[in-house]
Computed example of a mutant assay.
Amino acid sequence: MTEKQEKILNAALTLFAEEGYRSTSTSKVAKSAGVSEGLIFRHFGNKEGLLEAIIKLGEERAKELFADIVLEPDPKELLRKYIELFVLVSKDKDAIDFWKLQFKIKWELEIYGEHKMEAIEEALIQAFSRLRYNHPEQEANLLLTLMDGLATRFILQEQFEMEETIEFLKQKYKL
């Protein structure tokens, strides 16, 4: 990706999240990015193409975040890494800003993108199976849902402290 494409995506992500996807024009994105509107069309086709690129960027970053976790052979360590992932992300200001914007777009357009969670879901199911949980699929689903809720609260509730809940989850799963 070129530097100008990155500028366009960053500007679009920020504007879509702040003003809403439907309310943001490509001319406004171009002005914010310091490029011509024609350059947006050349690289992304149209506003929908720009949105697709932003969503794809989120999926790529999610894969990067989950890569070390899904490759972890020890099931308890896999669970610990997944549960602690959100604490690590919460300490990175750029990552927080990126994911906040991704979540805002997801909520506005009612796009969940559950396919980006498939690899981590399968890894969690396998971990719970290897740890002999009675219902590994349901445990994985529960943990995914809890962590999604924690991420949502962290994003929406300014002073939310997730560390206590993370510690509780680690105790629950004996990690």
Rank of each mutant, 00 (worst) to 15 (best):
K7M: 12
K7N: 08
I8C: 11
I8L: 04
N10G: 03
N10F: 08
N10T: 07
N10K: 03
A11L: 03
A12C: 10
A12N: 00
L13S: 04
L13K: 07
T14C: 11
L15E: 11
L15N: 06
F16V: 07
A17V: 08
A17Q: 05
A17H: 00
E19I: 00
G20T: 05
R22E: 15
S23F: 05
S23E: 05
T24I: 00
S27H: 03
A30L: 03
K31H: 11
S32F: 07
S32Y: 06
A33I: 10
G34P: 02
V35H: 11
V35K: 08
S36R: 09
S36H: 14
S36D: 14
E37C: 04
L39G: 09
I40A: 09
I40Q: 02
H43M: 15
H43K: 13
F44Y: 01
F44D: 04
G45P: 06
G45A: 00
N46L: 01
E48T: 04
E48M: 02
E48V: 01
G49T: 07
G49E: 05
L50H: 13
L50R: 06
L51G: 01
L51T: 01
E52N: 12
E52H: 07
A53L: 08
A53Y: 06
A53F: 01
I54E: 08
I54M: 04
I55V: 08
I55Y: 14
K56V: 03
K56T: 06
L57C: 05
G58C: 03
G58N: 07
E59S: 12
E60D: 02
E60P: 03
K63W: 08
K63C: 05
K63A: 15
E64H: 11
F66A: 12
D68A: 09
I69T: 08
I69C: 14
V70F: 04
E72Y: 10
P73D: 07
E77W: 00
L79F: 01
L79P: 10
L79V: 09
K81P: 12
Y82M: 03
E84L: 15
V87M: 03
V87E: 02
L88A: 10
L88M: 07
S90Q: 13
S90A: 12
D92P: 00
D92K: 14
D92S: 11
D92W: 06
K93C: 11
D94C: 02
A95V: 10
I96Q: 11
D97Q: 00
W99Y: 14
W99G: 04
L101C: 09
L101E: 06
Q102W: 13
F103M: 15
